[in-house]
């Protein structure tokens, strides 16, 4: 019996039982060994709803230890309701130290953003993933998508990209734009804005992706080549609001657009609240 069991109020440390953690840990290791390939896993029903980050929560619960400092963000911010809820969950069931500072965190669980600050070697970034299959809009059948991944046949995705460019002059996806990992697997980067895609390329941190409802785990090891799907004559071009942040003045950070009045007024502020705080101080 572990001392950590009592501390977590009757539940095991970090909520999951040890057999479940072992199963998830094995999947993480295989994910790292086969970058970008989706590993099926026996996702558990969590006390938070599917679609609200259960995949990310199961990953975080399986890697987290008492020496970690956890940061949880949603839409780039530590104080959005679901980030607050998930952070509280881990404080309750694992008693770990938490932080809002990207630089101080060892494990960062995120939904829809990659922090602006460069991540470092000691950090693990855990993504919450709604639809892990990058081909799902083109081929909803999992059996068929699995076959296409086995063959490395991504002509469907390339054709869609070509059609978008022919019709509207640019790619159709502004977020969750698929990436090629290590030149082999097409991967969903989760619904991060295209602006964040380049941060996946040769990241110093370990990137883990968890989809609870779809029961898939995948990973990108550090320093791995990650390229947004594009064509040589139409390179992938991330979108960024032109306005500077109303709080810190940053021009190169990703912004939230806030409607400030009913006469078309708009204010732009950094989506990454920790980055904005650092800029202001």
């Amino acid at each position: 019996m572990s001392a950590a069991v009592q501390e977590a109020g009757g539940y095991n440390f970090a909520y999951l039982d040890e057999a479940t953690k072992r199963m998830i840990r094995r999947a993480i290791l295989k994910g790292l060994a086969i970058p970008g390939h989706q590993i099926p896993f026996g996702a558990r029903e969590m006390p938070l709803p599917y679609g609200w980050g259960t995949g990310g929560i199961q990953l975080t619960a399986s890697i987290l230890g008492p020496r970690d400092r956890l940061k949880v963000i949603d839409q780039g911010a530590d104080d959005t309701t679901n980030a607050v809820s998930i952070r509280r969950f881990f404080q309750r069931v694992a008693g770990v130290e938490v932080t809002t500072r990207t630089a101080e965190a060892t494990v960062i669980q995120t939904r829809h953003r990659i922090p602006e600050r460069h991540l470092t070697e000691g950090q693990v970034l855990v993504f919450q993933v709604p639809m892990p299959e990058p081909l799902f809009r083109l081929e909803p059948r999992l059996t068929e998508a699995r076959r296409l991944h086995a063959l490395g046949d991504y002509s469907l995705a390339q054709l869609r990209l070509y059609e978008d460019i022919a019709r509207q002059g640019e790619t159709g996806s502004s977020y969750n734009h698929p990436v090629m990992v290590n030149g082999r697997y097409l991967m969903s980067p989760s619904p991060i804005p295209g602006y964040d895609n380049p941060k996946l390329h040769r990241s110093a941190a370990i990137l883990l992706f968890g989809a609870g409802r779809e029961k898939k785990i995948y990973a990108v090891p550090p320093w791995t080549e990650v390229r947004s799907l594009d064509f040589d004559d139409h390179p992938f071009r991330p979108m960024l609001a032109a306005a500077p942040c109303a709080f810190c003045g940053s021009r190169d950070s990703y912004k939230d657009e806030i409607v400030s009045d009913d006469r078309g007024g708009r204010v732009f502020v950094c989506s990454d609240t920790d980055h904005c705080r650092e800029n202001q101080s």
Binding site: M1, S2, F13, E18, K21, R22, R25, S62, I63, P66
Partner: peptide
């Protein structure tokens, strides 16, 4: 410690 030793080894 079954829980914490497994975590740090993992």
């Amino acid at each position: 410690d079954l829980v914490l030793d497994a975590q740090s080894c993992f």
